[in-house]
Simulated assay, not measured.
Amino acid sequence: MTPLAARLHAALPQTQCTRCGYPDCRSYAEAMASGEAAHNQCPPGGAEGVHRLAAILGREDIPLNPGNGHEGPRTLAVIDEAWCIGCTLCLKACPTDAITGINKHMHTVIEPYCTGCELCVPVCPVDCIALENTTGARTGWAAWSEADAAQALARYEARQQRLKREELEQAERLERKAEAKLADLQAHTHGAEGDEADRKKRVIEAALARARARRQQQS
């Protein structure tokens, strides 16, 4: 990240909501620094956020782009636990690991860690997640603090590291599994011979190549 992108990134609320049109706050900061994105695409930051970004970029204040959303109060995701089916889709969508639960069991939101990003709402297949206003009439940065932003960023980065570690571990497991099959091809091809044995060997070799490529990408 360039120094300019780093300054812009530090000025964002770190909700990781993607409403700016980018996958996370860092990507949006880098897009602004390169001139790809305007500085009025962050609804959680609101008008004050646009002002902060404009000052860093040396540009004028402009209204928040309504195409990205509207400034509003801080919200908290609340799961109607009576309707939750434990699908885990909201866990996968949450950028700060603010939802806890396991498959086919009730999920719940860890309130201090929820950024109100809204990403959990559309993925819920039973529509059991609602957003509650937690700051009344306070909106944008008036409803959010530097400490909130720092915590959200720390949790997001920790989650990214966890996902990367899990991807690497999965790739290593698949690689070991494919290597074991190649080492004892006769047993794993169930006595197949000729063309069928060759076909199964190619399938295992292809799986091994994919696993190795995946591991190298995650390393």
Rank of each mutant, 00 (worst) to 15 (best):
W83E: 13
A55M: 08
Q186K: 02
A55H: 09
P44F: 14
A11E: 07
S34I: 03
E118S: 08
Q170G: 13
M1S: 09
L53Q: 07
A54C: 08
A54L: 02
R52E: 07
A152Y: 07
T15M: 07
C117N: 11
A171N: 12
H9W: 14
C114G: 05
D97M: 09
T134Y: 00
H188S: 03
V123S: 08
V126F: 13
I102V: 13
Q170M: 14
D80C: 04
K177T: 10
C87Y: 11
E71V: 01
E81I: 01
T135M: 06
Q170V: 03
L119C: 05
E71W: 10
R138Y: 13
P13K: 00
R7A: 14
N68L: 08
G116W: 09
D61W: 13
L185T: 00
G46P: 04
N65I: 04
P23M: 02
E111C: 03
E30W: 05
L182D: 12
E132V: 03
R162P: 02
E196C: 03
W144V: 00
P122V: 03
G45C: 06
L119I: 00
C124M: 06
Q186V: 04
H39K: 01
I85E: 15
L89T: 02
Q16E: 15
E71C: 02
G35Y: 15
K92L: 08
L57I: 06
Q151D: 15
C114N: 11
T115V: 05
G46K: 03
H51F: 06
P95C: 05
I85C: 09
V123K: 02
W141S: 00
C120I: 07
G101K: 05
A150T: 13
L208K: 09
C120Q: 02
